[in-house]
Design a protein around this nucleic acid. Structure first.
Lengths: 166, 166
DNA sequence: TGATGATATCTCAACGTTGAGATTATCAAG
DNA sequence: CTTGATAATCTCAACGTTGAGATATCATCA
């Protein structure tokens, strides 16, 4: 059979046989796979009234543990967007009543973004179905390949300095 | 050592030990890896005055073979964005003199987007360095792992119906 | 105490994408 | 021919992100 990238690499082989295709293929497949997964995740989140990034932010707060609050700065580092986007996203989630801004006396430059009871309940109820959904999306990979695949991804990420969430 | 995703999965293991983490890990690593690669590619393209998507469109036209022209519809299908974005991108590349709109008598609903001589020269000169750059970015993956890694990506893409560029 | 630099968050103009609809052209059927 | 359906491209308002700068607070030290 072959995927879309096979067809693309065939074109390159015809037009520019001097180019080595392995890296191009992996680069393209990673882009396409990420895109497909993101679309599929978006469909799932939409069933529950959430945007992709809204789910991400709620999940980040949830996995930080009680009392389920982080500063915008911490949320920024945990994300892959810039500060303006974080402010905007917090605004939207606050308007939905899923998080709230809490100022503490300690350092008044800072704000805590805290899951509301509703936000906590929502994300806690969604994590199980989300994991099931992602598992289903990746279920085509034979079990005996899974460990090596994940390990390869980790090797690449470590080499690109993706080594910390702090 | 461990990558950023290891730290995230550790948090989940502490907070929600009931969740199976393999699929979440792969999903997150694919997102992060794609993001890192896209950033690195962007830096490379920027050295040559191109945006990420501009390089993509020029490369799509180049690999289609002489006479290096495709309709906006074909460029749309080859991309992962919507029609408004395609029109906008063509406008920008046309303003830079790298592609031109050509109407043919055959079907006047259609337009061909054709690489100009400058556009062809630019993308042809860039493909070699681009492949070198991507190869370097992926060089941490041991050679004996590469074939299986690529094959696993293909398995996943085929299962998600990413099977055609037409 | 006051000055200086660092830190945390927010602001906002510029820009790109989305996606439904408008426009124009072609094709098929009667 | 007309009519209606289909097709290809473009338009544009709504929206989100970027990224530099503004604002406010804190820390340090003379």
């Amino acid at each position: 059979m072959g995927d879309a990238m096979d067809a693309i690499l065939e074109q390159w082989a015809r037009e520019r046989p001097d180019l080595d295709t392995w890296a191009m293929g992996v680069n393209g497949r990673l882009a396409r796979l990420r895109h497909r997964l993101q679309q599929a995740n978006r469909d799932f989140y939409a069933e529950h009234g959430l945007e992709n990034h809204e789910f991400d932010m709620l999940a980040t707060l949830r996995r930080s543990g009680a009392p389920h609050r982080l500063t915008p700065g911490a949320l920024l580092k945990a994300s892959m967007v810039t500060s303006g986007a974080i402010t905007n996203r917090i605004d939207k989630l606050e308007a939905k009543g899923l998080v709230e801004r809490v100022r503490e006396a300690a350092d008044r430059r800072s704000v805590f973004i805290r899951l509301t009871p509703r936000g906590l309940e929502l994300i806690d109820g969604l994590m199980g179905p989300h994991v099931e959904n992602v598992s289903r999306l990746l279920s085509a990979l034979p079990p005996e390949r899974r460990e090596e695949f994940d390990a390869s991804l980790r090797i690449l990420l470590e080499s690109l300095d993706d080594t910390s969430i702090h």
